[in-house]
Write a protein that binds this DNA or RNA. Structure first.
Lengths: 249, 249
DNA sequence: CAGTGGTCTAGACCACGTA
DNA sequence: ACGTGGTCTAGACCACTGT
């Protein structure tokens, strides 16, 4: 088998460590699971004609992303099973996109877009004064005529941010809209996940009988500098929705 | 206020970047949230009399762990709210320790320790042949006379690994035992979390009526090199157990 | 012993944001 | 223009592992 060895492009503007990283990923996917090649730093330095820094940065990111593991005085080795699909942590607000990728045809409905003072629990989580108003709305995602998830969203946003229901339905996520229009990125988040029995509004929101099981996900969203910027309570139909995430520690 | 500035110890064997990192964490906790000090690389280099590498490594880890954020051409800034307790992702098998830290008195009971061929679903997840045997057992954690969680665990382990129920109850985690005795560390994991209605064995395991809501957490455990090494299905009493995790992306 | 990754030094050039 | 973090070079010494 003839293997055309990839080389680096020093004029492309793409950092060397990213090119190295991508080449190694491609090679591992292509079947280096049969641990053929040695990924020692020295080998990569001589192979790509670079110094240690870009090699180490590439390997560092590969470790963080779970592609390889390193053992002191032993070497760097690819993890097994890179060909099988590994679950990625669900992106925030990326549920619509994910469902489409899965070949489903999700529909989003947004109700009750308004701006008012949130309930005490939410106000506390967002660290707001008793009179501060936030943008709020309800979003229901339906798949195959069945209501899959109902979310109540509270967003600390400038008064100028007054999206319509239509805009919120078309945008993949309200958070994306907020970033595009006002440069506010709510990239940090804290999730609380538990099971409960549907009752009252929760039951009605998903057309469930009282007492039926639901999955509740409460999320506090934070800006890069750690200030609360949003709060969301999502109710999922039991069994139909699974939260998936991986850890390397 | 007199501030005794911490200095580095080059003889302690502790890497400089770790010392720098810890000093910065302490200072931020002490109240640098009032963004008093500048954490630019140049400032830290001159302050600690080191080169750029340890400073960058310290800051890199602080970013990864959510203590600071960096903006190109602007600077490095502490995130707000470091004094309030942030949720840490629950350590695998660390539930007993966590409950004790919370001042509760959890009790663990282990039943049915044995070694046999697992059901098809588990065998598939673990990538085993039809005749491979694994160690299996059931573990129930009780708090205040109430069964909180019931786990069915399947462990790929050498035949010599034959812990007693007693040993498994006293060890914080079967995974710890496996690492201590055979050097097998199942550090990687993939979690699937959803809500369901208790029925059959699941209902009996937690003394619930049929149809009551439960939280199901299925976890595939992997070794550092990515080979499946264990599988666990945990059933949690609804409302009493919350899965908490944070993300910086 | 040689090879590995972990840590550190002392420089360099660049893109980008602020002033 | 200047300061910031992002990237890269070319060295160095160390601890640890396997032979």
């Amino acid at each position: 088998m003839l293997m055309t060895s990839a080389t680096l492009d020093r004029t492309s503007g793409v950092p060397l460590y990213r090119q190295i990283k991508q080449i190694l990923i491609d090679e591992m996917r292509a079947g280096a699971g049969a641990d053929g090649l040695a990924m020692t730093e020295e080998a990569l330095i001589t192979r790509f004609h670079v110094s240690r820094a870009p090699v180490r940065q590439a390997l560092k990111e590969l470790v963080d992303e779970g592609y390889v593991y390193r053992e002191r005085a032993k070497g760097t080795f690819p993890v097994q099973g890179l060909n099988v699909q590994r679950p990625a942590t669900l992106q925030l607000g990326g549920l619509m996109g994910y469902l489409r990728e899965q070949g489903l045809s999700p529909e989003a409905k947004v109700y009750g877009v308004s701006r008012f003072v949130p309930p005490a629990e939410v106000r506390k989580g967002l660290g707001l004064a008793a009179s501060d108003k936030v943008l709020t709305f309800t979003r229901v995602i339906t798949v195959k005529e069945e209501k899959l998830v109902s979310s109540q969203v509270y967003l600390c946003s400038p008064p100028e941010f007054e999206p319509t229901s239509r805009e919120l339905e078309e945008a993949g996520s309200a958070f994306e809209l907020l970033q595009q229009r006002h440069g506010i990125d709510l990239t940090r988040s804290e999730h609380h996940v538990w099971a409960s029995a549907a009752k009252g509004d929760d039951a009605a929101a998903l057309d469930l009988a009282e007492g039926e099981p639901i999955l509740v996900v409460e999320t506090l969203l934070l800006t890069r500098d750690g200030r609360p910027g949003g709060w969301r309570r999502a109710i999922h139909r039991a069994d139909d929705f699974k939260y998936v995430f991986a850890s390397n520690r």
